[in-house]
Amino acid sequence: MTITSTHVDVRDLVVRYRRRTALNGLDLRLGAGVHGLLGPNGAGKTTLMRVLATVVRPASGGVTVLDGDVTGDARLRQVRRRLGYLPQQFGYYPRFTVREFVEYFAWLKEVPRDRIPAAVDRAIERAGLLDRADERLKRLSGGMLRRAGIAQAIVNDPDVLLLDEPTAGLDPEQRVDFRELLRVLGVDACVLVSTHLVEDVAAACADVTLLHEGRAVFRGTPAELAARGAGGDGDSPIERGYTAVLRAARSA
């Protein structure tokens, strides 16, 4: 594992889909640790994930992932080897078993051949699917599929792990386990978790970025977000902080 101080460095990022501007001058620097990404639908969370995952090219701005510029081609392959990504819509081959599917991704991410079996077992175990490892994906429930997706994302021990709505479909117990996994992964790697479930962020993330209309309107710890809660709606301090910050951003 390479020691990197800044895993993700985004400067003045602009992304447009046709005429709609999805990200509008976003600045963001992320190091090791678990980072939460919050924001209403359409705020640009998934777009940011896709830019960092190297599948969307920005219209302007600089994006450096693991010291590699991902707006060009030169270092893409090196960056991608150290990347883990769970997209919001997770596709899969239904007749593959969990193990086969994760193995396929280990190969795609160029995990050295002799390390693949151990890496696959470890990823499946960390995702909590070891007892279903030889089950075909089409037989898995939604939550278990999500965990298979997490397993493929972490099979190469990524230095940057991008998880778009990873807890959707997980039951409460699984979410508790998943937060524990996030904390472990966040020790060395930069883990960016996009979610609508603010309590996941409160429980697992070292810091939070709140996006609104393609810009970061808040950056701080979950406690700092909760402290902004005056005047917001919600059932928990952090929910109140979330709505209050958004309300302020809208009126600005």
Binding site: Y92, W107, K109
Partner: peptide, 22 residues
């Protein structure tokens, strides 16, 4: 057509292996 039918295109595009090998 499988990758796109199965909505795996995006995830596969983020992997490092050169496309010709895939």
């Amino acid at each position: 057509g499988r990758e796109r039918r199965r909505r795996l295109g995006e995830l596969l595009a983020t992997t490092s292996l050169p496309p010709w090998r895939r």
